[in-house]
Structures are given as structure tokens and as C-alpha cells.
Write a protein that binds this DNA or RNA. Structure first.
Lengths: 237, 237
DNA sequence: GACCAACCTATTGTATACAATTATACATGG
DNA sequence: CCATGTATAATTGTATACAATAGGTTGGTC
């Protein structure tokens, strides 16, 4: 993973290559392209009205983002995420999110802290209503604020890179209203620890937050996971 | 970051694009191209006897590897590593290498363990002689074995991706014979903890190993770092 | 001399043509 | 019937031509 200086800024959205890249990324994350599906250069180029050149360059980027796998002289295939991958991702994230929360405690700006508070407050409303889309959006934002607040481009980029996995994993797992409420409660405690300047507690809570999120998935059974594995041929949802 | 399923296997060395990619990667890591130096497509293409197309694709990969930064319609520039980056890298690595050592304790094969022992034994010889090239080679290999042994493709790829930073950082910092001896001693203790099946101790030692390595750099002054910084200013003016 | 504008050049971005490789279909022989 | 070889199609890999953009140069005006 790599690492990823200024990636967002660098990957412009306005060149054809950039547009293809973002479009394909979106489509993969949204599940339009299933795991192990082959991406054809000409088909995608025609669909977006561009030639193969920008498509190919976009492929090379998606490859290193880990979203597709390119086999030379054969083709580009959407990568699969296994149950083991999910476990590893959450293990790694639990450590890094903890580190991030600790650093954020020391470097967060008043504005960022305020947005964090607002986020938790708003999420408590949507959680009680069971508005799942808003919840995922707020969850993304909550963590993103912490990434920015930790004052480490390295860590920020690293965690941000994991985020696309999180998006794809969410598609494969059940998330309940109950978990939403519990998750937001954990967010609130992390926020308060940061507000209180207790970096150790913030780290501990953020780490637990990831562990809890993973445990919840396991409890609910990572339902699509093993389908996903075999679904290379099945293609059913 | 990306995340990097099977990256090594995927990035073939035999296509023109692959050759360009590996050549440029090598040259950047070896310091042939200085930080913030601009890479021209035609110049590199002519040097390697290929057209711009494979060069451009190689650029896109190098960008996401974090080795270069592409500014749209302007050019590709070798990324700089700041002192802050080094600090962050070692902070992150200290956590992940610890995690890796813990997992490796549980999953290492007898063959891997044996190679680890051999590595430490051989390194103790070269350390005493002050053979720095062999030491860095053995150090790389030591950590690489642990990455493989941890039985997590995710973590393995992640740590492997950090490795290129390590290579570039080594170019900028002094490493002494004394540190070589101390470092290998730390390797030995990690190896013995793993051999004893003490995963907690292995994790603790591996984490300390990174902290010590970083402290040693700081003590020796990250000598080239601020040159690098000033070069950035000159470039951006 | 300082400033600005219109060109000019160098470089990147994209499209297309062609080469190389791989997959598929079909025929042939065992 | 299956295995194998070959021709054909589909697809990726690369080179090249052209378009678009950024930076610098020249020339003019104040």
C-alpha cells in the first residue's frame, strides 16, 4: 500500500483518465462489477466515450489501489475480498485507528472537534430512526475527521486507503440498527476522550471500536463472504 | 495503498511497461533520481528504447507506490521524504511489525524459523566485521521472512510496501557498526521469542526494535533530511 | 526598466493503428 | 469419445500521430 502522498490531490477528476478511474472505482465499490468480473478495455472505453489509452492507465491505478488485478496479456479482474481479508483488515485498522485517535487528541483543531461533536449528535438522531444510509455517511465522515486531525499524512493516507475495503465489506455484511446505536455511542466516547485531552483513553476506545465492529460482523455471520468466494461463476446476489 | 493483492506477482517484469516500472523504481530507490526531480516521458522512453505509452503506464504505478507524484498536464516528480515522514513511518511500522511478529509466532514454519536462525547467526559475523552491505541485505531478509510467516497477505503487503521507504531512508541516514550489532542482537531476541512460542514477547521486542532503530537515526541526526527539505523549497519557488 | 500580451516551444493527454498474445472453435487422428 | 493441433477471433501490448496545455520568450507599450 502505497503510500500515497497526496493521492487525492494528484488523481485529478477532470482528465479522461481521472474520470475513468473514478467511475470504475465507484462502480466496483458500489458492486456494479462483481468480484472476479473481467473488465474489458474497449467495452469500458466505448461506454465512457473514450479510447483505450486512458482506460488502460486507469486500470494501472486501480490495480495498485487493490481494486482490480491485472494479469499480463490476459485481462483485468475485480479482486475478491475473503473472510480472512476482512479479519486482517480490522486487525490492522484496530491498531492504526487507535494510533490515529491518540495523535488526533494532541493535534485536533477546535473546528474539527466541533464537527466531531456535531457528527455524533446528528448520528444519534439517525441511529434512533434507523436511517442506515445517513449512518454510514456520518460514520465515514467521523473517521475521516480523525484521519485529518492526526496530523500525519502517512497515517491519514494509509487509513484512507483502507476505507475502500470498508465500503466493499459493508456491502457484504449486515449492519443493524442496534449496531448503529452502539457504534455511535462508541464514537461519542472517543470524541469525549479527545475533548478531555485523554489520548490514552482515546486510543483504547478507538481500538475497541474496531474490535467491536468486527465482532459484530462475525456475530452476524459475514453472510455474503463465502458466497462471494464461490460466486465467481454464480453471479447471483 | 493499496492493497495490494499479489502485487509482486501481478507486476510482471517482462512487459515493456513492467521493465520500465522496475527500472525507474530501482533508480529512484538507489538515488539516481533525486527528490523532486522531474521525470520526462520521452527522455526515459528513449533511454530504455521504448515509446511513451509503457512509460506513462509505469508512471501511474509509481505514483500509487508513492515514489513519484504526477501533476496533471505538468509532469512527474520524485516524491520527497521529510523528517516528519520518517517519524511517522517508524511509528506505524513499530505497531505493524509488532503485530506481524506476534502472528508469525503462531504461524511460522520450521523452515522459516530455521532461516531466521541462520540469518541471525550470519549477521552476527558480518556485524562484527562491519560489512554494512551484507547487514542491510540480511536485515531486509530477516523482516521479509517475518512478513511471510505472519500468514496475512494484507499485513505482508502493507509492510512490504513500507520497505521501499526504508530503503530510501537508509540512503539518507547514517548507520554505524554499533547499531548493526545492536540491531542484530534485537533480531536474535525476537527470533528466540518466536522459537519459544512467546508471541507477546515477540510483539514487544519487534515494536521496540523499530523504536530503537528510529531513536538511533534521531541520535545520528537524520543528516540528509534537511538538505532534502531545502531542496523542496528550491523546487517549489 | 517594468509590465503585459501574443506567440512559440516543450511536454503531457488522447486517439488510433498495428503487433503480439491469448482464447475459442473446429477439424483431425488416436 | 477424447486428445491435440491449427486457424480464427478477441484482447491486450506498444508505437505513433495529433490535440491540448503550461512555461517561457519576444516584442511592444507605458
Amino acid at each position: 500500500m502505497s503510500n500515497y502522498d497526496l493521492k487525492q490531490e494528484v488523481t485529478d477528476k477532470y482528465s479522461l483518465r481521472g474520470r475513468v478511474f473514478h467511475k470504475l472505482r465507484e462502480d466496483i465499490l458500489n458492486g456494479r462489477y462483481k468480484e472476479h468480473e473481467e473488465l474489458k478495455e474497449v467495452a469500458i472505453g466505448e461506454e465512457l466515450g473514450v479510447s483505450r489509452t486512458p482506460v488502460r492507465e486507469a486500470f494501472r491505478q486501480l490495480e495498485l489501489e487493490g481494486l482490480i488485478q491485472i494479469i499480463p496479456n490476459k485481462g483485468a479482474y475485480v479482486t475478491g475480498i475473503t473472510a480472512k481479508d476482512v479479519k486482517d483488515i480490522y486487525m490492522i485498522r484496530s491498531s492504526l485507528e487507535g494510533m490515529c485517535a491518540r495523535l488526533a487528541t494532541e493535534h485536533i483543531t477546535p473546528e474539527q472537534l466541533e464537527e466531531l461533536e456535531e457528527n455524533v449528535y446528528l448520528a444519534s438522531f439517525h441511529a434512533s430512526k434507523g436511517h442506515m444510509e445517513q449512518m454510514t455517511e456520518l460514520d465515514n465522515r467521523f473517521h475521516h475527521i480523525l484521519y485529518e486531525a492526526c496530523d500525519s499524512k502517512m497515517l491519514e493516507n494509509l487509513l484512507q486507503d483502507f476505507h475502500q475495503y470498508v465500503i466493499r465489506i459493508r456491502k457484504k455484511t449486515l449492519s443493524t440498527k442496534e449496531r448503529g446505536i452502539a457504534s455511535n455511542e462508541e464514537h461519542r466516547r472517543i470524541m469525549e476522550a479527545i475533548k478531555a485531552g485523554d489520548s490514552g483513553e482515546a486510543e483504547r476506545l478507538a481500538t475497541c471500536h474496531m474490535v467491536n465492529a468486527y465482532d459484530n460482523m462475525v456475530k452476524n455471520g459475514l453472510y455474503d463472504m463465502f458466497n462471494g468466494e464461490e460466486a465467481a461463476d454464480k453471479q447471483t446476489k
